[in-house]
Every structure is written in structure tokens, then in C-alpha cells.
Simulated assay, not measured.
Amino acid sequence: MHASLLITHVRLPDGIPTDIAVAGGWIEEIGPNLRRGADVLREDGEGAMVLPGFVEGHTHLDKTNWGMPWYRNEVGSRLVDRIENERSWRAGTGHDAGAQSLALARAFLAAGTTRLRTHVDIDTDAGLRHLNGVLATREALSDVMEIQIVAFPQSGMRRRPGTDALLGDALKEGADVLGALDPALIDQDPVASLDTTFEIANHHQKPIDIHLHEPGEIGAFTFNLLLDRVKALGMQGRVVVSHAFCLGMLADRERDVLLARIADLDVALLTTAPSSVPVPALRACIEAGVTLFAGNDGIRDTWTPFGTPDMLERAMLVGMRYDLRRDEDLALAFDCVSTLGARACGFNDYGLHEGARADLVLVDAETLAQAVVSRPVRKLVVTHGKIVARHGVASI
């Protein structure tokens, strides 16, 4: 049961002082000098800025070594090297996706993330073992965090026969979204790979989120094949292309033609804003009407030593990658880990308005830009009307 809550003396991102009344887990009223009965729990914000709960649009909870001893990374530079190394290491160590996903999810929550999309490895070695662990985490946190699970063929689909059936099983067991990976360079048959992916998604009536690392012209070719299928099957608004490095490699004219198709078919793009590879151009995406949002990707796993479960940090990295310096531009970076992420992933009832789900984060910052740049400790985190963290420490 959700208690009524009145948060007083806070400021909206535009600086306007306000109070926020919460009832039944939802924002009931926003305005100055609100009054409620004595039975309502009160929280004095002491002038803090209130933000909507953050959205992690792309991570891998099942892979993380968060809180574990340091993993010494000596893997080769090729994508296939990392895939094979990870699969071997997880099998050899008995890596516990349940315990590790719970540890990282709780760290996300303490830092203000209340909605999260995670990709979970499905392959013929592990079967649904990693999925079962993350399903347990989702159940354990169901009252305080909304977690979407992507059934992801990290080792490829067609190159490992039987993976397609396992992906279907994963969707039947509770995965929310169907994943895919580099149909040309990993599966080495983009037409057949995409046909199978869309057939599975259509059969189970699930959206798609595909990792597309493929570069330049190869990536553009695959992207157009994907868009053909989005149009043919009426899957507008139900497909995300993660990474989409090819869009950062194409000539402007070719890129803009592709962006126009992407916008027309309402396909969203996910970026981690990496510094080491080309990325989709933020301004070009905005001008074309394409939704571009952000996520961490893996955090402290066999792929990368980097990453933290702090979406303000990811917003800062977006700002740095796209050279966003003006305060109004840094607000765009925050949109990538809030409103745009919610829109792209389909997290409903999101935002700072009456009738939205009461997911609130209080930070000591003068402006939204300062919050992104300085990443202050979260003073208070509320999810669905329940206080779940204070001063960066989760209470659940």
C-alpha cells in the first residue's frame, strides 16, 4: 500500500519553488503552499531541486561484476573475442546473474534510476539461466523499480543453431523485448537474420531492440533492411536500434536520407555516447525528428572496466561527447536519460506532472545543468510514492 506523501520546499528544474503531493503512488498535485491532513507523511526538501526518476535505456545487469573483486581484462580487441571470452568466463566461474543483477539494480535505485531496460544473454550454452536470475531481480524489486528485460543473443543467433527457439522461450518466460545482434557481421546473413528476428517478435507480439555495431555502408545496408521490415509488419514505434555506429560514419547526405526513413517509421536510437567510436549526430537526429536516448551499456564486466549506475554521469558523458556547453544544451543531455528514454522504451506515466507516477529525485543543485555536471549525491529518491533512498544509500 502506498502512503500519502507531501514534499515541501523544492524547486522544479526551471527554478520555480513548489510542493509536491503524492497519493497512491502518483503525483496528485504540484504547486506552492500545499496543505494536507496530519496523517500524510511530510518531507522537507530544504530547497533542493526535484527531478523525475532517471531512465536507464540500455544496460546489461546480468553481466556485471559490481561489488566483486577486480576483473583483470586481457581479452582481444575483436567483438568475437569479447563474446567468446565472456561466455567462457561466465561458465567457468559460475557467475551468478541473479545476485549480481540485484546488486547493480539496487545501486541504480540509490542513484535515482526508477525505470531500466536491461539486455540479458540467451545462448545455447547458458540457456535461460541468466534470464532466470534477472527475472528474480525484477520480482524482488517490482514495487520500487520498473525493469524491462531484452532477450539478447549475445553470441549471435544463426551462427548458433537453436538460439532462435531459446529466444522464443525467453519471451514466453517473461522477457519483454526481443534483442538481436549485427545481422551481417555476426550472423553473416542479414536477410535471414532479420527475417527470423521479426518473425519471432511478430509471433510473440513483442518490440525489438537490436545491437547494431556494423560500420558505414554495411551498417546502412542492414539498417535499411530492418526499416523495410518495420514498415511491412507495421512495427512503427516498437523498434530501437542500439549504438547505430554507422550513422556516425556516413556522409551527411546519405545519413540524412536514412534519418528521414528512421523518423518516418518512428524507430528510436540508443547511444552510450562512447568516446572511441563514431556516434549518431545529436543535432541531426533532433532536426530529423528522431528520438535519440542514452544508456550505460555494460558496467564493470568482462567487456569493460568502465561505467557506474549513475544516469547523471551518463548525461554528463553525453554532454561531453556532443560538446554541449550551454545550460539549455545540457538540458538535452538530461532528456536523453529521462523523457526520451521513457518515450523510446515505452515507460508510461512518466514525468513531473499531475497524474504521473511519483518517481522523484531530489538533488542540491542550482540548475539542471549543474546537476548534470556536478552529479551531486541524491538527497532523496522516491519511486511510486515510496521513499527508497537517502543521501545515496538505498533503504530497500
Rank of each mutant, 00 (worst) to 15 (best):
V373H: 04
N33A: 14
L34F: 12
P69C: 09
T196E: 15
L330V: 04
R261D: 01
I147S: 01
W303I: 09
A180M: 08
L332K: 11
V150G: 00
G76L: 09
L166V: 06
H119S: 10
E214Q: 07
N65L: 11
G248K: 03
E84L: 14
G47P: 07
I30H: 04
F221W: 12
R160F: 15
A110W: 13
R390H: 15
A232R: 11
D176A: 07
L128N: 05
H213M: 10
D189G: 07
T8S: 14
M249R: 06
E287S: 04
S4F: 00
M320G: 00
L109G: 11
L181S: 02
G37T: 12
L185H: 06
R325A: 01
H384W: 10
E254G: 00
N296S: 15
V257M: 01
A111M: 13
L12R: 05
F108M: 13
F108L: 12
A192L: 15
V382W: 05
I122F: 14
P274K: 01
G219E: 07
L233E: 03
D164P: 13
L330F: 11
G289D: 02
P69H: 03
H391D: 15
H353M: 06
L269V: 01
E139C: 09
I20P: 00
G127P: 05
T291D: 02
D164S: 15
V134F: 06
I20L: 13
D121K: 12
L109D: 09
H119E: 10
A107C: 13
T302P: 03
A170M: 14
T64W: 05
I16D: 04
M316N: 09
L41N: 15
T197K: 04
Q205T: 14
D252A: 00
G133C: 08
S395F: 12
L312P: 00
H243G: 03
A91T: 09
G45Q: 06
M145P: 02
A342R: 03
L79C: 09
W303K: 10
W70T: 01
I286N: 05
A97W: 02
D364Q: 15
Q148K: 13
T197N: 12
V290C: 02
V22I: 15
V363G: 02
P13W: 03
R378V: 11
R283Q: 15
R343I: 05
L116A: 12
A263V: 01
D228L: 06
T196H: 11
R357A: 09
V279Y: 01
D327C: 05
V120L: 11
T8N: 01
G24P: 06
R300K: 13
Y322D: 01
A288C: 08
P376T: 04
A136R: 14
D264A: 04
V55S: 04
L258N: 01
L12W: 02
V177D: 00
R160D: 06
A201N: 11
G248M: 08
L79S: 05
V239P: 00
H119C: 08
